[in-house]
Amino acid sequence: MIARRFIPLLATFSLLVVMFIVGGFQFEGFASLQVVTNLLTDNAFLLVVALGMTLVILSGGIDLSVGAVVALSGVLCAVLISEYQWHPLLVFPLVLVIGTLFGAFMGTLIYVYKLQPFIVTLAGMFFARGLATTISEESVGIEHSLYYAVADAGFALPGNAWLPSSVILLLVVFGAIFLLTHFSRFGGYIYAVGGNRQSAALMGVPMARTTIGIYAMSSFLAAFAGILYTFYTFSGYALTGIGMELDAIAAVVIGGTLLTGGSGYIVGTLLGVMLMGIIHTYIIFEGTLNSWWARIAIGLLLFIFIALQKVLNRSSTRG
């Protein structure tokens, strides 16, 4: 028998495979390596954001500010590089530090003043978005040799597929977060906090450090995603990533992470992002379907997975 906690993960994986096969039979060129690498390239920043969201949701919280932090980080990069002529390698660490501090501040408000995560991060979303638009309302283009160099870097894969450098970077981040979540003490603390806050405190989990660390991590990753986004579009724009927090939450839940916290896998989030991406791809290939079906399909999936979680939870507490 398969452990109950793997059921949502398996469901997502099977859906992904089914979509891929169905798409492959229906459309030429759907089931190709290129589509897979494109999925990764087009969703790289979403995946990075969703990884941070996974940590937050695993701990029983929520972070609504990520989309806005992506935009803020992108705008900061673009403005500093294009208007102030800073070197990107100087800008990136600065942006990452700002992002991390921003998250740590939100975490502090949540932990020290016992404010609800959703309202604090909602305010964070306002703040980051507002700051981004205040810095620049227009989209700011980036022209720098480093950007061209990175854009051209990559590996050729068999079947005429191309593995761009952003995907390589993405895999590195994924690996790091995977290790952090599943192989470090801090990762254990995240699960502990999400399982039962009170018990975790009684068992000696450093609550302040863990809570603040989780939100700092989420904002760090969102800032990182913002940098990735500038490589994707060669610009920074204050209105990028509107609604991205919702996509990230959806990906995390579809990836089998329990919304109440304490259970889930980093790999699941990868599968969730891929599944959402493949739904979009399918609709593009289909051509006649309105792209808004993707939203509705994702909403329905989200509902089914939440309902599934409820059912699994209920049977596990009764059994």
Binding site: Y191, G194, G195, Q198, S199, G262
Partner: peptide, 9 residues
């Protein structure tokens, strides 16, 4: 009495 451990771990 109510075991103060973490059921999810």
């Amino acid at each position: 009495q109510e075991v103060n451990l973490l059921p999810n771990l």
